[in-house]
Structure formats: structure tokens, C-alpha cells
Design a protein around this nucleic acid. Structure first.
Lengths: 202, 202
DNA sequence: CGTTCTGTTGACATTTTTGTCGGTAGCGGC
DNA sequence: GCCGCTACCGACAAAAATGTCAACAGAACG
């Protein structure tokens, strides 16, 4: 009957990119990285395939942009929590907590796992950049004494946060355990070590 | 010159499948799951595309078989290390160490990450099976007292082992730290907690 | 209004990946 | 030796995914 033609929304370039990347993030969280097909992304964003290509050049460009965006968000989130605490000691605990939050939500750990699994050179630069940003942030707040032991411990915390963030929910579900307990226990391990260290030294 | 025709090797069905899956494993470890294309698998195994399909039906069948195989290998490896120790207390430490070994080598953590990222129902059954096997194994060795706290702690250990196994090497490399330190520190965290627990209780 | 700029699109072309099919060839049994 | 079974293969078909293009249509500006 009616000759209704489809309404065509016209966004600013930034809004258009943002819209598409948001759809990508949803897909990544819900179905994993292998589901980031051009057609799916376009459908999720409610635009045509060609529109996605117009803004990002290729599906590879989309993925790169998505990584950059998610890494930036992740670093910012950690930075906020990190800078809440004034004392260096409390900051380590808060920092660990921030790490677990960052990787446990919004697919931070899934992104990292994806990067690790695909692990091409181009993508590694993204991770390297993130690590350097966090490292620089910490140094800016706590000063230079970033000796090896501290760095190693940080890496352990990051690895733990990633492991718990990526697998914690699934594992807990498999054994019918409450999911948040894993996170708490892991954080407790870290904080116990910190208390022990500072207690011995101070 | 010569009319040399390509020698055609003829394997038993089991050997043929094994050959193909071994090639898959190499590809998975080296290039990640997204590189598990039919053509690459066939080339890696030194057979024709059609041969791979003949044995597994579809590329999906290949991936499922690969997961099953790797999970079985992983469970067996953990089981061996696990049963080395007689006392239950030492077994927890040895078990943690076995977990870290299992997930840190032969792509155990990468397999788990792959399963987690793709995470479809069919694949989840594979993980569930593995968890149940390990759980049954532990119960067979240590008896039934598998209360919630113990389970939760086990899950934390598994998550840590996975996180360290998957990201440890890359993270250490990014900061120029020796890779094995992360593992040692993480294990130390676990064992410290065990000593504390057993010391308080016994 | 008319013009320009460009975000948007469907239709189509290209490339990549998967799957099918008829025939070939190694191997054990007789 | 030959026969049946089936692992194996090349060639081709089908499907899926990516990318191209010319044209359409909002929005700002005169």
C-alpha cells in the first residue's frame, strides 16, 4: 500500500563511528571476536555494509579502531580509581581493585584475550601502548622507584585480574559457586601480600 | 622430464585424524584460532582439503575434535602431576603447580581462552566435561570434603593459572622482565595462603 | 529555493572459504 | 594376480565475506 521509504538518519562522522564501534563492542561481548563480521557489525549498528566501510576503510580498520577505543576506555577507568587514593599503600590495593573491575566488566579481559590469541604485530602495539600508559600513570603518581620486584608484582596482579575477569564467571557457573567470590578471594590474596610486605618493611 | 607422480600416503583413519589434529594444534599455538582455515589445516597436515573434510565432515568438526583432544591431553597431564603427591596438603601446592604447568605449556591457556571467547553451547559441554573430570579426579584422591570454600579457592587457583599462562609471557616481555618470575610469584601467593590456613587450623 | 558537501545506500564485483563429486590408488584378503 | 574397500585427490560448485561504485538524500549555506 504505502510507499514508505526507509528513513535515513544522517549522523556526524564522529557519531557515526561511535555508533558503529558501540555495536562492535556489544557483539564482542556477546558473541566473541570471531563474530565481528562486516554484515553483523552493520546490522548491529543499523546501517548498511557500505557505511561501515566508508568510515573505517575495511573490516580490519574497524577492529583496530575498536581496540584503540576499548584500550583508551580501560586506561581511563583504571586511572580514575587509581587516583582516588592519596597514600601509595592504599593505592596498590585500590589499583588492584580497579584492575579487576576494569578487566571484569565491559569486556576488557575478552579484548586482551583476543589480542593475545590473534597476536599480530599491529595489535601488539596497542597492548604495548596501554601498558606504557598505565605504567606512566603509576610512575607519575608514585614516583620513579619502579624496581623489578614492584614491576613483577604488578604483572602478577594484572595477570590475575585478566584470568579472573576472563574465566571467573564461567568457572564459577560451572561449579555452581557465586561468581563474585572468586574476585574477592583473589583480591584478598593480593592485599594479604601487600600487608605482609609493608608490615615487614615499615 | 620425469613423469613423477606425487606419492600418496595412505594412513589408518586414526592416524589420519591424528596427523590433521596435530597440524591444527601447531597452527592454533602459532597463529591463533582464527587461522584455523580449512586450506591452512590441510596444507599443514600435508593432505588435500577434501581429505580433511572426509575425516571430520566440516571445519567445525575439526575444531570440535581439536578441542576434545586438547582437553583430554590437558586433563591427563594435570592428573599425572596431581597424583605424584601422597599427602593432601602437599597436593594442593603440587596441584597448583601442575595447573600452572598445564596451562602455561602446550597452549592449554590458549585453548581455554578460545573456548571462552567462542563460548557456544556445544563447546561449553567440552569445558564442562573437563571440569567434571578434574573434579572427580580430585575427589577420588582426596575424598568428598569438597566444601564451598575449598571449591572457591580452587577456582581462584585455576583462574590465576589461566591468566598467568595466557598473558604472563607477553606481559613480562612488554616490560622486559624475566617471564618465569610471574609464575613463581603467583605460586608463592597461593602457597603462602595455604601455609597460613593449615597453620591456623592445625 | 538552489547549490554544495558528504553521509548513506542498494546493487554488484571480487575474494575467500567451505563443501561436493567422480575418479584414483594404496593395501589387505583371497 | 585381482578384487573390494576406502583413504585420498583434483576439479569444480556453493556459500560467505569483503569491498566497489554510482546514485540518493539530509543539512548547512547562500
Amino acid at each position: 500500500m504505502s510507499t514508505e521509504r526507509p528513513v535515513r538518519v544522517r549522523r556526524s562522522p564522529e557519531a557515526a563511528r561511535e555508533n558503529i564501534l558501540a555495536a562492535c563492542e556489544a557483539i564482542l561481548l556477546e558473541k566473541g571476536p570471531q563474530a565481528l563480521k562486516l554484515a553483523d557489525v552493520a546490522a548491529g549498528a543499523g546501517v548498511a555494509n557500505a557505511t561501515v566501510l566508508h568510515h573505517f576503510g575495511s573490516i580490519d580498520g574497524v577492529q583496530t579502531a575498536l581496540m584503540t577505543r576499548m584500550i583508551r576506555q580501560l586506561v581511563e577507568r583504571v586511572a580514575v580509581d587509581f587516583s582516588q587514593h592519596q597514600d601509595a599503600v592504599g593505592r596498590v590495593g585500590a589499583g588492584a581493585r580497579a584492575l579487576f573491575d576494569a578487566f571484569g566488566t565491559r569486556g576488557g579481559a575478552r579484548l586482551a584475550a583476543w589480542l593475545e590469541l590473534t597476536g599480530e604485530a599491529r595489535r601488539m602495539t596497542a597492548i604495548r601502548q596501554a601498558v606504557q600508559e598505565v605504567s606512566a600513570l603509576r610512575m607519575q603518581l608514585d614516583g620513579p622507584p619502579d624496581d623489578g620486584a614492584v614491576q613483577d608484582f604488578m604483572l602478577v596482579c594484572i595477570s590475575m585480574a585478566l584470568g579472573v575477569g576472563l574465566f571467573g564467571a564461567t568457572l564459577a557457573d560451572l561449579l555452581g559457586r557465586p561468581p563474585e567470590r572468586i574476585r574477592e578471594i583473589a583480591l584478598d590474596l593480593i592485599e594479604a601480600r601487600i600487608r605482609q610486605e609493608t608490615g615487614a618493611q615499615g
